[in-house]
Computed example of a mutant assay.
Amino acid sequence: MIRVVDLFSGAGGLTFGFKNRIENNTFIESNEFDILFANEINKNASDAFLLNFPEIPMLNCSITDINESYLQEKNIDYTDVDLVIGGPPCQSFSTVGKRQYDERAKMYQEYRRVLTFVQPKVFLFENVTGLLSMKNDEKLPVLEDIKKSFSDFSDFGIDLSYEIKDSVLNAKHFGIPQNRERVFLIGIRKDLEIVHDWQFPAPEIDNEFLTLEDAIGDLPSLGNGETKHLYENAPYTNYQRLMRNQCNYLMNHVNGTNGEKMLTIMQAVIPGEGRNYINSLVESGALDQKYYLTSGYDNTYGKLWWDRPSSTITNNLTTPSSLRCIHPIQNRALTPREGARIQSFPDTFQFIGAIKSINSQIGNAVPPLLAMVIAQQLKDFFDENFLIGRE
């Protein structure tokens, strides 16, 4: 088995992909990877992780607390680690936010510090594409700074170095109904004898991507402020059948309560349009002046397309005034369960906390199906280079 540590785990999107595979359009538990421990500072996310992966030790603490003494006190095995996976907080790098090179932006340095005593053969690092254009305190590209720091650990007084490979992967190319690009770094320890070089997974789908309807079309319709816990329709796509995962109780399918102004705006906007479209209706006299929107970005108050992949799911997926998240054929925003479906979490996957916290657990995650593709690629890489004959 490949021995793994999951840092900044969230509710467990990466772990799900490493602990499961798909056979006959059904999720099957995989035993190829042994997750030695996971770390997540957010209590709700760590509780959700434990709920879904009760057999994996979870350290609900800041990564800054984790050192060899701490792991020994917790009786956590961190010896002979093959792989570290995880992505530090991405909000500082997001092109939507303030893009500040703040303490959260520097958390990759803590990820790096953990590598100094875990010293895995390989690590997987994930973050938003905003990382590509973010600058550090010296106005240099953050990504290059990160890659350079992972290539040389001499500042710790140890002989440790990784060869870094990076790529941008889009979830829609791997059977996920979401246009979601993310940066992935793979680090391979330079002291190892690598025969077969690492290759990122090639896109599996170049067109005819899964659509929003393919993902959530079977879920019950909801009125203003309504919640439903029972399925009303049979799944009619393979993706819907996979996501049902033999679930018979619908969790987190709740619609918020909106006032008259928001209901009117959501009804008026058309798929693919948003704030500017509403304002154009006001300017033309088609809508009353009271509906004019003075705040937000061009794609806030945006309505999704039914016949295309979803836009990138964010932490505000249930807030209609946020980035594009209005349902294309119902007068409401997405529900947390719809967001989870779009991210490729099965309906059996449980989240913990209030809606805001649940949305963060969903929006921050690596889509499990994408994690599954990467996990298979890593398994093949380990089999070719390290694990032949190892049990």
Rank of each mutant, 00 (worst) to 15 (best):
G339S: 10
K106T: 14
L387Y: 12
Y108C: 08
V81N: 09
N25K: 06
D214V: 08
N364L: 02
I270D: 05
T300W: 05
N248W: 03
S280Q: 15
S94R: 08
C61Q: 11
T211R: 13
G97D: 06
P271Y: 15
I355H: 05
E138W: 09
L143I: 11
N258F: 14
V128C: 02
P235N: 03
T257A: 06
K19T: 11
V4M: 13
P120K: 06
F351Y: 00
S360W: 03
I329R: 03
Q100I: 12
T319D: 11
I158Q: 01
D218A: 15
Y239W: 01
S357R: 02
A215I: 10
D206P: 00
K165E: 13
I216Y: 01
Q330I: 02
H327N: 08
G285D: 02
S280A: 15
S311Y: 05
N233F: 02
D347A: 09
L230R: 08
M262I: 06
L323H: 10
S221G: 12
D206V: 10
F123Q: 07
T300G: 00
Y162A: 00
F125D: 04
Q377K: 13
P235W: 08
D197A: 13
E144I: 06
I188K: 13
P368H: 00
L250N: 12
E110K: 07
E273H: 08
L323R: 14
